[in-house]
Amino acid sequence: MEKDIKKQQEYKDIAQKYEPKPTLLKNVLWAFVVGGLICDVGQFFLNLFVKRGMTPEQAGTPVAIIMVFLGSFLTGIGIYDDIGRFAGAGSVVPITGFANSIVSPAMEFKREGFVFGVASRMFNIAGPVIVYGVGTSIIVGLIYYFLKG
């Protein structure tokens, strides 16, 4: 057993030597530019709603809805994955990427039907996001209640 572990470690070192590393600088640059631009699109709509008399907090929801719409639409017409190839995290992390993670599996598994294909696969990634997000927010709320309440 000990010999196996040693052999595995030796092999890991060889394999690592030949593993091409991601072009970090290029990836980071793309992520920065695309991520920044997507946020600027959000800023454009935010400013629009604020100009019409909403507070920035109130404007948050319609901006989110619009960004989700754009992310879903670009996924549907097959552009979002092309953006993602270059942008990496730049197109994953914005809420448009959240929309992409909903539409892409739903579309892909349409052949498996509208219940177990589309509707259940929609939440492949969105499900865990909502579970952990809402879960954390409940804990935050409870802590707040017991500390300040």
Binding site: T61, F73, A99, G141, Y144
Partner: peptide
């Protein structure tokens, strides 16, 4: 409120994700 507040505040985004997500995966 600890249980209702989170989803209430984000209801718009989540509902939009479900609605547009379903819509566009049906169309495309």
């Amino acid at each position: 409120g600890a249980f209702t507040g989170g989803l209430t505040a984000t209801a718009g985004g989540i509902a939009a994700a479900i609605f547009f997500g379903y819509l566009f995966s049906i169309i495309f």
